[in-house]
Nucleic acid binder design. Structure first.
Length: 617
RNA sequence: GCCACCCUAGCUCAAUCGGCAGAGCAACCGCUUCGUAAGCGGUCGGUUGUCGGUUCAAGUCCGACGGGUGGCUCCA
């Protein structure tokens, strides 16, 4: 992948979507009134905070997808008790019923009003200087300074707000947390205290939101991977490095086997490359110039510097260059489950979602300009097909186009972008265009999936690269006998296996569909005299390709069922006198359904069918 | 990395103001042989993350380090 590869880095590592605010539609839709309520609640909160800390300085406090926040510079750190106090005071202010009053002010007034608020003064400067809007464009016309007052509180603010604090439902407001945040997000600037809160129209909506948050917590992969004995992290081994236990390993094997099989069918060749490479290679690829801060320190090998690989692309390129390539060999699609290591700052590590070592399901497609359109459509269909197999059915697609700073010819970009656009449209999928949002080396498509909790995650990325083929002087001999530059496309479908696994765990809440479940069925002998029969059945089921265990502990059947439920094993097969006699198993499913007694063959068929169809149960 | 908070048995958590480190679950050993989400009894389990400091006395107070959690422009 090209230097400074933000996108692949993104897919592999994109963080919790909660803040990205892509929850479910009910929360997501722009609701003007709700937005006003939240923004107004932020002002009310600021008032309450300033009453408590009159010397406090206020920064900014917008409404966000799930509520609002406000940043403060305060004389001491806030405690949970402070939050309770502030929240209680907010309710009082709300019921006191102040009108929100809009007023435009000139520069002098504004400076006077906020004379002891340095952050506001800085904002005034910026606005007057024609501060850039969110698109980086200067606003049209003369900048206007406006303020909003409610009761004793005044804030530099564009609005809009509700008419009166009473429009905020005091029973639907809650402060959630306090966190550090740099002034204007800049690490060079002061660290402020940010209070996050949420506000809704009704107490019931607040309840629903809080229940949703609880559900998110229950499904937290960091908890589930430990409880289900799938994976661990080790203080002694270093943060951000995952250890796959046998049960996690089984799931990963299923994922990888499926991935390999599909790739073979999809016309890919599977390759393997080393974990380290000489500085020279990373110099030529440009990584040392543009990506070094994400790479680990070099190791000295017989006087030569070697680096742990943060990406696989330079290695694939070396293989491409082992001989002269003919147009007849193209397209070449090379895929690798390549384990890469990237330095991530300690503060951003997060379970499996953001780690320091991970395996990318990477591939590089080398093709002619004439083939590009077909290749893009092919890879897009391929990706969606695989994502659907894992149980995701809702997608959002983003097309990112040429930024101002770029390499390659605009005509190439145009062709590449058109091929991406046509592919999306051919699939009849809705998409958004991020104009100028591509990497400097090429345009891309990203696919985001929506999980069971309505959160979205970026998984797939399909990116053109006009940079590396130049840097490595890639060529193929065309029909005309002359050398041409091939097109190169990077793509990762699942992103990182670690992160994808974390997403799967949360999507299914640990209750994997049968084809992925580490243990698909557990035999539960009722008494010791049934253990032998249980093992016989288990043997038959294993021979049929199922992952089966026998619970031969001295526990009672009830306890064994409970254990199986806790482990979220899809099928529990109770065997007692009746079953042993009739050569049957008595099926209880994870969801509590009890299909009852059936022959071992019938159960085998049922389970195999669930596996083939990738059903939950 | 930075800010705040957290770290007690494998897990979830107790331990008043600084005064003898505890419980449930798990594990192990027995007994029980049972029909759809926990049978009964016993045993084991700890340098309270690490190192240092204050104190007659530290799980508790202070500092450093390690690890984790929530955040670090959704833009007046």
């Amino acid at each position: 992948m090209a230097p400074a590869l933000p996108a692949q880095s993104d897919i592999a590592q994109t963080r919790s979507p909660l803040r990205r605010g892509e929850m479910s539609d009910q929360y997501r839709h722009e609701n003007d009134h709700l937005h006003r309520i939240r923004h107004s609640a932020a002002h009310v909160m600021a008032q309450a905070v300033l009453e408590k800390f009159p010397e406090g300085k206020v920064a900014i406090g917008p409404a966000i997808e799930t509520g609002f926040y406000y940043d403060f510079d305060l004389p001491r750190p806030l405690t949970p008790e402070d939050l309770e106090e502030i929240e209680a005071r907010m309710r009082e202010i709300i019921t006191e019923g102040y009108d929100f009053v809009y007023q435009e002010v000139d520069e002098e007034e504004a400076r006077h009003i906020f004379s002891d608020q340095p952050y506001k003064l800085e904002l005034i400067e910026d606005i007057l200087a024609g501060g850039l809007d969110e698109h980086g464009q200067p606003p049209e016309g003369k900048p206007t300074l406006s303020i909003y007052r409610h009761g004793p509180f005044v804030d530099l603010c564009r609005g809009p707000h509700v008419a009166n604090t009473r429009e905020i439902n005091p029973d639907a407001v809650k402060l959630l947390s306090v966190a550090g945040a740099y002034w204007r997000g800049d690490e060079q600037r002061p660290m402020l205290q940010r209070i996050y809160g949420t506000a809704w129209e009704t107490a019931q909506e607040l309840e629903q939101f809080l229940a949703w948050r609880e559900e998110v917590e229950k499904r937290d992969h960091r908890r589930l991977v430990r409880e289900l004995d799938l994976l661990s992290f080790h203080e002694e081994g270093g943060p951000g490095l995952a250890y796959w236990h046998p049960k996690g390993g089984r799931i990963r094997q299923v994922i990888e086997d499926f991935w390999r099989a599909r790739h073979r069918e999809g016309g890919y060749e599977i390759v393997f490359t080393p974990h380290i490479g000489k500085a020279e290679l990373w110099q030529q690829s440009g990584h040392l110039d543009f990506y070094r801060e994400s790479m680990y320190a070099p190791m000295d090998v017989e006087g030569m510097e070697y680096f742990l690989k943060p990406m696989n692309c330079p290695f694939h390129i070396l293989m491409y260059k082992t001989r002269l390539r003919s147009y007849r060999e193209l397209p070449m699609r090379w895929a690798e489950l390549g384990t890469v290591y990237r330095y991530e700052r300690s503060g951003v590590l997060h379970g499996l979602m953001r780690v320091r070592g991970f395996t990318q399901d990477d591939a590089h497609i080398f093709c002619t300009p004439q083939q590009i359109e077909g290749e893009v459509l092919r890879v897009l269909r391929f990706s969606l097909d695989i994502l659907r197999a894992f149980g995701f059915s809702e997608f959002q697609i983003y097309l990112s186009t040429m930024p101002k700073k770029h390499v390659g010819e605009p005509a190439q970009w145009e062709q590449a972008q058109e091929s991406l656009r046509k592919a999306i449209e051919a699939e009849g999928l809705p998409y958004e265009v991020d104009e100028g949002g591509g990497a400097f080396y090429g345009p891309k498509i990203d696919i985001h999936i929506k999980d069971a909790l309505g959160r979205t995650w970026q998984l797939t990325t399909i990116q053109f690269d006009f940079n590396l083929p130049e840097r490595f002087d890639l060529a193929y001999v065309g029909e005309d006998g002359k050398e041409h530059r091939p097109y190169m496309v990077h793509r990762a479908l699942l992103g990182s296996l670690e992160r994808f696994f974390g997403i799967l765990v949360e999507h299914y809440g640990g209750a994997f569909p049968v084809w992925l479940a580490p243990v698909q069925a557990v035999l539960i002998p009722i008494a010791d005299r049934h253990v032998e029969y249980a093992y016989d059945v288990a043997e038959r089921l294993r021979a049929a390709g199922l992952r089966v265990e026998v619970n031969d502990s001295g526990e009672r059947m009830q306890a064994k069922i409970r254990d199986a439920q806790m482990e979220k094993i899809p099928y529990m097969l109770v065997v007692g006198d009746r079953e042993a006699e009739a050569g049957q198993v008595n099926l209880r499913r994870r969801d509590g359904e009890k299909p009852g007694a059936m022959s071992v063959d019938d159960f085998t068929r049922l389970a195999q069918e669930a596996v083939e169809e990738r059903r939950l149960l």
